[in-house]
Design a protein around this nucleic acid. Structure first.
Lengths: 223, 223
DNA sequence: TCAATCGATATTGTATACAATGATAGCTTT
DNA sequence: AAAGCTATCATTGTATACAATATCGATTGA
């Protein structure tokens, strides 16, 4: 993307935000970050600006940077768009996935079964990412894949909770199964619907979903 | 978005790129830009980084910045995504547009008729932007509107040629007319199809479209 | 006791200085 | 004459210095 130091800084900070080490609303002091990474403020500022441009950080003029903490309305809007893009990836994959890609997707899905059986949610998390990533690839549209991934990452802090829900692993696996078959059948319409539901409602009721988002938001305000 | 000087710098440069003053592939020398705007290199670098993050500029490590010049494949990918998002805006607008918004959209469309009759393509360009902007608004999803606008701007340099085509004004107006009616009828499916076709094929044949993109690309390489 | 104002301090925004690397031109060699 | 190498130069990357502004606490007054 860019120069060495700045890009690794940006990646490190992005990862900390995605993983939840840096939580929404948290202050991002230029000097502290500079000291923490042993660099001057200059590359830190450039990294922060990049993160701001992709929506992970909010830059308030003369008042510093904070981890972006979108309101409930913002989140719903972002989920709506993410669902559309994930659905589009699925549709394109159903149409364009190569024979090799199909085999790979099937294998990825099969391999994720063990994590469900073991109740290994971290392991499943990785497998889940790989599954979706394979669908992105299958769409044969790198730009679309980038955009989708970007929104996905931006929403990551608010999706984590969802994944810890009871039975979520089995539910997710079952959904993946249906998605996989729809892709294999080339049923674009169905893939679209299944994927959209998969990434938004996340197996629970929509009300639960909203409630969990609200909870996350309250937590932020309280913190 | 950000601090005063940097953001105005970014906006100025973005505008120059969109309008075509700065052409794809053109070098963006930090020092020259700094001198041109009477600032130091620091804010220039930050502005360039922002533009890079939103895809308008390419930052090659230690080799400077250039106006992004995507290849044909990249362009097709971006058009594919833009079409999807414009279509989504239309679908949402068909579902959510308020009575006031509907009236406004109708008025905007009616007002654009004069530009067609006068053959005033610059005037129509503005009216066209306003028409689409009204649809964005109508979707009631600010995030989606931002994303769509962003891609639209990014593709602006490659859409300009299209708009100068013979008869394009009348064609575009006719398409807007169909889109408007579909929105008024709440026919989401139809709006989607019409808008996708409208923003990609642009009234001509798809082959013509590709050809014009290739031409633009060749021009870039030659320059 | 509380609110408001003013000043000290911390932090951001910008400029400049320095370091490091890529580009270029001239020279050498075959 | 052409290709490769080297030294110089231009440009980017980073650090530091300085300027400007927001934050926060103390003080004052009601």
């Amino acid at each position: 993307m860019v120069t060495e130091r700045v890009s690794s800084l940006a990646k490190a900070l992005e990862q900390e935000i995605i993983v939840g080490l840096l939580r929404p609303g948290e202050r991002l002091d230029e000097t502290s970050i500079a000291e923490r990474f042993n660099v001057s403020r200059t590359p830190v500022r450039e990294a922060l600006r990049h993160l701001s441009s992709i929506g992970l950080v909010e830059l308030r003029p003369r008042r510093g940077a904070v981890v972006a903490s979108p309101g409930l309305k913002d989140l719903l809007e972002m989920f709506e768009v993410m669902a559309e893009l994930e659905g589009m990836c699925g549709r394109l994959a159903a149409r364009r996935l190569s024979e090799r890609g199909r085999t790979e997707l099937r294998q990825l899905h099969e391999r994720s079964r063990v994590f469900v059986d073991d109740g290994d949610s971290d392991g499943y998390y990785e497998a889940n990412v790989a599954f979706h990533e394979a669908i992105y690839q299958g769409g044969q549209n790198r730009f679309l894949a980038d955009q989708t991934r970007r929104i996905r990452n931006r929403l990551a802090p608010y999706r984590r909770l969802q994944l810890r829900r009871r039975n979520r692993l089995a539910e997710s696996f079952a959904e993946h199964d249906r998605i996989l078959h729809a892709i294999m059948d080339g049923n674009e319409q169905l893939v679209d619907e299944l994927l959209q539901a998969h990434v938004t409602v996340q197996g629970g009721s929509f009300t639960d979903f909203i409630a969990s988002l609200s909870a996350e938001l309250d937590q932020r305000v309280a913190g």
